[in-house]
Design a protein around this nucleic acid. Structure first.
Lengths: 157, 157
DNA sequence: TCCCTTATTGCAAATAATTGCAATAAGGGA
DNA sequence: TCCCTTATTGCAATTATTTGCAATAAGGGA
């Protein structure tokens, strides 16, 4: 069964109604090579079947995320991005200074996952986690001179 | 030296200008008992010195966060909330289904912190991390019946 | 297959957050 | 202390996301 159908089936089993809009949104995310913003998904939806509304896209994405069927990440791109949980998986180390994103192995979180479950009975979504912090370059930067580093910020890499 | 002055001093040392607006925003966050939204900070700023603009608040909060002087969290409250890093510290386990938040000990992340630094040269901000997932109740919920659980959702706890 | 219940949608309005730009003012140097 | 540079602000407009509500339609039952 395809990725798309698996997700739709899960939704159906959980009592959600399968609408044309939801089908296509799931299809778009499943087929995507990389993560997509709500706006991008809406644009693609428009080309496939015009007439839908972007609030439907937002609501569909919310359902998919709440049901654990997609991941949703703030990668400092100015908007939230979405992808299937099969995409990747990797955790995102996002530099809060230069916005550079390092993709890290999710295995580093295995122990944490167990601890949170054992100590807090919390089943954490750790594949695709976003963690903010400082990359090596920003950590080493002498802060006093050019603290905002506007020029090199965008072209640092 | 007070919390407020420490933060302002750090900003000054890093080349930022200390404006009246920034002073008060830092003061408000430092004195706060709990995390605050940008809007709440703006309201408080208005009572202390009217005339400032909320975009200044947003920009100040961005600087403070980028400089590692405050934490910024999405706790599923519909808006981002801010607090000093001294507040707490604790990590937030946010249930993606019922929005319940468990406050967990940051110590569970000690090992992760070391691994990220050693393997990726990334200095992660792990105190005050938000992690989404499922709480015990939502994990155990039979999904097929009443998947949205609207009634009990808000009153579950 | 048709009908009924009610989840879902489209729309418009509201809220949250960001941004461009001209005016202002912080802080270093003379 | 005054001046100059330029970071920061206020304002208005823009973008991102959410929400209330009436109309629509999915899916189960007769």
């Amino acid at each position: 069964m395809s990725q798309t159908d698996e997700i739709l089936d899960t939704l159906r089993q959980r009592g959600y109604r399968i609408t044309a809009q939801r089908e296509i949104v799931v299809e778009i995310i499943s087929e995507a090579e990389h993560h997509l913003s709500a706006e991008e998904i809406y644009q693609e939806l428009e080309t496939r079947t015009p007439g839908a509304n972007i609030s439907t896209v937002y609501r569909t994405l919310e359902v998919l995320w709440e049901e654990g069927l997609t991941c949703r990440n703030d990668l400092s791109e100015g908007k939230i991005v979405y992808a299937t949980r099969e995409h990747g998986p990797h955790i995102h180390l996002v530099c809060r200074r230069c916005n550079y994103v390092i993709e890290a192995e999710p295995e580093v979180l295995n122990q944490l996952s167990e601890v949170l479950l054992a100590n807090y009975q919390f089943r954490a979504d750790l594949d695709h986690l976003s963690i903010f912090g400082l990359c090596e370059q920003c950590e080493d930067d002498p802060r006093v001179e050019d603290p905002h580093n506007k020029q090199s910020q965008s072209t640092r890499r």
